[in-house]
């Protein structure tokens, strides 16, 4: 799935196969990431959150992901929330920290809240990419099914994963054909209508493709159940990692409680 982004990632996913975290059962990695997310979101003291981010960073070398690329992707997420990060120090009431132009006032509480959100958002995303994002998308589907996700949802996920690449290739072909006819996307009605027609055509072709897929599947005796071929098995390393990770999360929670009480 990481290959969706660029060719460079394709090699990235290949090298990742030898990384230590890859030896863990996919279910262990999903549960670990989910537990981490819940604990981190519950944390509110900055030192504990900083340690949580450090914990996610500590896993990065064992994931086999290229650190620079992964951290850049994490920083891209910060771009999404830039509006919030910029406005919060000014809009949160509290003790004065600094006078800004235009009569705005930055507060200590606002800055704290900004840091809290930035730290927890980054820590959770990083842990998720390191633990789950290194997984093959099909493996992720199977692991979710084994963890009790509704089968129809898993089927939908499998189909989506399977056909994203196919439809992306179709999209690229259409764009190439448009480029060959000297189409250059600009900020005007013609461009938007052309891209709209492209999207419409993409959907029409997707539906027609799905009709052929259904016929082909029926021909092979599809009854609404895709067999999940895998042999997921818990191993000793899963237990070891689970205990270690759990201890870290417990320690973080206890530390948070003492910090909050002290404050």
């Amino acid at each position: 799935m990481a290959h969706l982004l660029s060719e460079a990632d394709r090699t990235l996913a290949r090298t990742a196969r030898h990384a230590a975290l890859r030896g863990l059962d996919p279910r262990t990695r999903i549960i670990a990431a989910a537990a981490f997310a819940v604990v981190v979101v519950a944390l509110s003291s900055l030192p504990a959150l900083a340690v949580a981010l450090g914990l996610a960073l500590a896993l990065l070398p064992f994931s086999g992901l290229a650190p620079a690329v992964t951290l850049k992707r994490m920083a891209m997420m910060d771009g999404f929330i830039i509006v919030m990060l910029v406005t919060l120090p000014v809009t949160t009431p509290g003790t004065l920290l600094a006078d800004l132009p235009f009569g705005l006032v930055a507060t200590r509480e606002g800055l704290r809240l900004t840091a809290e959100i930035a730290l927890s958002a980054n820590a959770v995303i990083l842990a998720l990419m390191v633990l789950v994002g290194t997984m093959d998308a099909v493996v992720l589907c199977h692991a979710l099914a084994r963890l009790g996700a509704p089968l129809r949802l898993v089927h939908l996920l499998l189909f989506t994963v399977r056909y994203i690449e196919v439809l992306r290739a179709e999209y690229r072909r259409a764009r190439q054909a448009m480029r060959a006819r000297a189409f250059r996307p600009r900020s005007n009605l013609h461009s938007w209508r052309s891209v709209g027609h492209l999207v419409g055509m993409l959907l029409v072709r997707a539906l027609e493709r799905s009709e052929r897929i259904l016929q082909a599947m029926k021909c092979r005796g599809f009854t609404g159940q895709i067999p999940l071929l895998d042999d997921l098995r818990w191993q000793r390393c899963d237990l070891a990692f689970g205990l270690g990770w759990g201890a870290c999360l417990l320690a973080l929670t206890l530390w948070e409680i003492t910090l909050v009480h002290a404050a």
Binding site: R152, H155, L156, L158, F159, T160, V161, R162, Y163, I164, V166, L167, L202, L203, A206, L207, R209, S210, E211, I213, L214, M217, G224
Partner: peptide
């Protein structure tokens, strides 16, 4: 399921 899956990929 196939239609929903392929269309979901298309929207992605």
């Amino acid at each position: 399921i196939p239609a929903a899956g392929v269309l979901s990929a298309a929207f992605f």
